[in-house]
Design a protein around this nucleic acid. Sequence first.
RNA 1: GGGCGAUUGGCUCAGUUGGUUAGAGCGCUGCUUUCACACGGCAGAGGUCACUGGUUCGAAUCCAGUAUCGCCCACCA
Length: 1031
Amino acid sequence: MIPNRFDHADAAPRILDRWDTAHCNRADAESDKPPFTIVIPPPNVTGALHLGHGLNNTLQDIVVRCRRMQGYETLWMPGTDHAGIATQAVVERRLKEQENLTRHDLGRDELVRRIWQWKDQYETRILGQLKRMGCSCDWDRLRFTLDQRCAKAVRETFFDLFGKFRIYRGKRLVNWDTFLQTAVSDDEVFSQTKKGHFWHFRYPVIDPKPGEPTHVEIATTRPETMLGDTAVAVHPDPAAALAAVEQATREKLVDAPEKERAAVQAELDRLASRTESMLPALTQLRDMAADGRLVQLPLADRAIPLVADEWAKPELGSGCVKITPAHDPNDYEVGQRQSLPMINILNPDGTFNAATGKYEGLTIPQARRAVVADLEDLGLLGDIEDRDIELPHSDRSKTPIEPYLADQWFVAMAELAQSAMDAVTDERVKIFPARYRKGYLDWLGEKRDWPVSRQLWWGHRIPIWSRGGLDSGQADSMAAEMQQIAKTYPGQIHFRVDADGERSQAVFVCIREENSPAIADVESHGLTQDPDVLDTWFSSALWPHSTLGWPEQTRELDKFYPTQTLITSRDIITLWVARMVLMGLNNLDRVPFDEVFIHPKILDGLGETMSKSKGNGVDPNDIIDKFGPDSLRFGLARLATETQDVRMPVQYECPSCEKLIDQTKKNRSAPRVDCPACSKPFRTQWAESDEDKALPKAAVVSERFETARNFVNKLWNASRFALLNLEGFQPQPIDVATLPIEDRWLLSRLATVTSEVTTAIDTYQFSEAARTLYDFAWDEFCSFYVEIAKPRLAEDADATDRAIAQNVMAHGLDQLLRLLHPIMPFVTESVWGFLGEIAPQRGVPTPAPVESFAMTAAFPVSVESHYDAQIERQFSEFQRIIAAIRQIRASQNIPPRETVPVAIGCQESSRSLLQPMTAYFAALAGADVQQIGPETAAFETDAHLALPEAQVDVHVDLERFIDVDAELFRLEKLLGQITNQITGKEKKLANENFVSRAPVDVVMNERKSLSGLKDQQDAVTRDIAKLKQKA
RNA sequence: GGGCGAUUGGCUCAGUUGGUUAGAGCGCUGCUUUCACACGGCAGAGGUCACUGGUUCGAAUCCAGUAUCGCCCACCA
């Protein structure tokens, strides 16, 4: 009646439905129970979830379910992240591909509307994935980083920081994406090596004095930027700098490996000759710089200064370097140090602007050709070297990045960063594993101000209105007007007047609320709102409190903040975790979470991170389809160890024959693959042609989940056995002390396992928890307890004992289901339902009615009084005897159905234990135990195995089965092993140092085990002699 | 360039404070299909724990160095 496979596809949706109807996931802010809160790391709405998210959310759900069962008022706050630039870029790219439109064709409102559509679509998909995995979030509380609640928190925070002067405006070089026309953050930039050139050219010195050079030679990979040059730099102390480099190279030569010596030597020679040939000229240029001398910037017809700055490396190029502060990050630094003007030569779309005169309107490549040609005409062009150039590219648009000077809003980090560092150093926030503390502290320690403006349309619009170009009189009267507005709407605006360019001033007003009446007043004075939006991490940083309703003083906030733990991946420790800490402290003066657990990353079989762009990404849904949600979860938890990233070889599943085909670099980027098994083709995510698209699609899966799937099946079937044998179950109180040894053994093991699993989950050792449960369920509960219980549960068994066995079995299964539920919620809930029907009241020692859901049942607490070391030791003796009999049987090829006579030589104390277990020897090893006790005699045709640790001799009667050769082979091999060990131990004990220095108990143990081995050796030798005599 | 981590049977990984014969799953070999489960059961083969030194009575484990791989950060006129 109950099928022999767990049908997850059928059961899981119904179980989800039942949990949902009973509101099992819901957290109640009015509850008296202690709170336990986790906020989800909100997945980006850019696309569907992959296995990395699968892992992240599985681990959270394990903790959440465990705490819920432990009686906490548990809130797992779900939501998604608007992911600013990433989402906008995805939608813009699609717009381009499908409709050949840019965002400017649509306009701001329409583009944002399209992105909302996209968001709705993917949010639905993401939530569907999470729900299918069994994530027990409180779905009614679903948040989005761009929803009204979050918007309110964002504005309140911005307003507060602005008022505290922790938000300021400044010009900075940003990574400019000329395609998307926006600044992108450093982490959205990747480098690509391109073939390029190193161009040398000369700038004329203005009015050279006699003996001075007429030209300064510089070299660059970006000739067109010379139009924005505002200086030429030379090192302030070229002699010392050269000497330092030479010294360093000489030291390198000393310990350079053989194959590199020649290269290092050549470099040293080059430096030496360079010092000789160039030092005088560089020194002279340095003096000229100190003298304030100018050079003529060709094509732009500007005089620019020679400056002395350490950025100019005398060992490189010509030793002089052109300085373009507005278009190069390093030159920008030099410009700041040397107070140089900064000339922007680009328009936002990457074309040259009016400042470049006749080059206006040219694209960068066009301008480059023009500049080079013009310099050549002027005779100022020198050598052109070939060179590989690392060119930064935008991760989003895949186009080259231009460093670009732009107005940006910044968050001043000095105090905020310090507060977040303190929280970790004084352990208000604990990071696991602890090694990740360093990265967190180092990054915050730099206290670099946080640029928060993004030139995007998708995000929280910066709540600042401004008007620039004011003279000082206008600025004063504007300030007075704003003062008036501030009075009219108390607490609604902050304003300040600031410099705007060289001569004029600007007024900036920050408005607190989205629908503030102050907005109309402010705008009536000609102020307009900043078009930029905030960095997506600004709203993410508020996630733990914005989702609970801050800045409102809600019951939820009171009950569920601060949260207890955060489970996330290591690449956002700085971007997200650190910022949540400092924002939590700023807004609520309390850290947002007590503990942070950083879990491993999932890599594919080639050791690469999974991503859709590589084609090795795995959709959790595909794994669920093939293996079921419990297998997905168990498999991930089992692999999530503390030290290692998870290496997960990935396969295509052939849609025709269901064979798994290993992914290789080659086939994972192909649009179609021919199945090597059935030779039918299938398509991949890359299919483009209509022909390919018509093929069936292969799911990308991993056979790594097979073990977990088998485990689910094992548990299901053990449960099935128990259920089938609980017929007529009657709850009754149990006197544990009078139970047979196997029952007390099970209770003792349950006590141990419960405490181990609890500790493992408390300390984020998910792999350990999963393994402990796997081993216990499979090797102990199924392989021993269930097997032993079989005769006791049989219909013809003693009725009294059968009733007891049923009670213990029901209890054992009950406890196992509870322990496994956080990791495998579906199969356990399913079995829980069946068990509840047949045994609605259960428990040892006192039966009680059970909860209707495993999900809301109490998590087991280790019953210390059930732990019994003596029983566990005795039982393992029993297990070892079983193994010994099986070993002998196997070596003799005794057919499984045959029963063999067995004699067990043991101490008197063990006899009373083993005697009642005769039936189990029969059931587990096909043994007919004829004698047990100290005076046991060997059989006439005897196979003998000594278990010295247990002081037990196992004899099997081979009368009917003897295969002399096989038995001799077994004994000779055994003798060899024993002899080897004896040799090792004798050697060890002969070592005077060992005997005198090692602890007494270690030495004693060695002696004891040696004498045991020697007895065994004698016995085996005798057995061999006897056997040979016989033969 | 700086930091972090890894290197254990064919594959993927465990291995607690140094202490008997280094474990598991998959794969492999042999046996096994009325009796919960063949997604099962039993037995077995397979490892000089990356390398070189050191500390120690004793090292997969601690220390130093080397090699390879991975991740993060910085830098690249």
